[in-house]
């Protein structure tokens, strides 16, 4: 009994769900970023599974670009978090309503 594409896709769906729950439940901005990484990894996993199922290398290229964009996104997001938390130590995301009109 060898793993099929369906198994990988189910695993990716479960991982995406766990990441989504974490994003909605946690209040620490850093942990919320980690949950976004979980969701991105779930999508990467399904991309590679589809690339293998359809014998198409374009899926792996897409994963490559997702990784690059994720790295850039993490850098910018952590920069924003650093500059916010430096001004207000210990802030969680509920405190960050300064742009509210």
């Amino acid at each position: 009994m060898t793993p099929t594409t369906t198994w990988y896709l189910v695993l990716a769906a479960v991982l995406f769900g766990i990441g989504a729950v974490g994003l909605m439940v946690r209040r620490n901005p850093l942990v919320m970023f980690m949950c976004i990484e979980l969701m991105l990894n779930a999508v990467n996993l399904s991309f590679v599974a589809f690339a293998r199922a359809f014998s198409d290398i374009n899926g792996q290229t897409a994963v490559f670009f997702v990784m690059v964009v994720a790295a850039a996104e993490v850098v910018v997001g952590l920069g924003i978090i650093v500059s916010i938390l430096r001004r207000r130590p210990g802030a969680n995301v509920d405190d960050l309503a300064e742009l509210r009109g």
């Binding site: 099929t4 594409t5 369906t6 293998r52 199922a53 014998s55 198409d56």
Partner: peptide
């Protein structure tokens, strides 16, 4: 799942 089939080699 019937449309997906089994895993194949990516690299031809």
């Amino acid at each position: 799942r019937s449309t997906l089939g089994s895993l194949q080699e990516v690299t031809a």
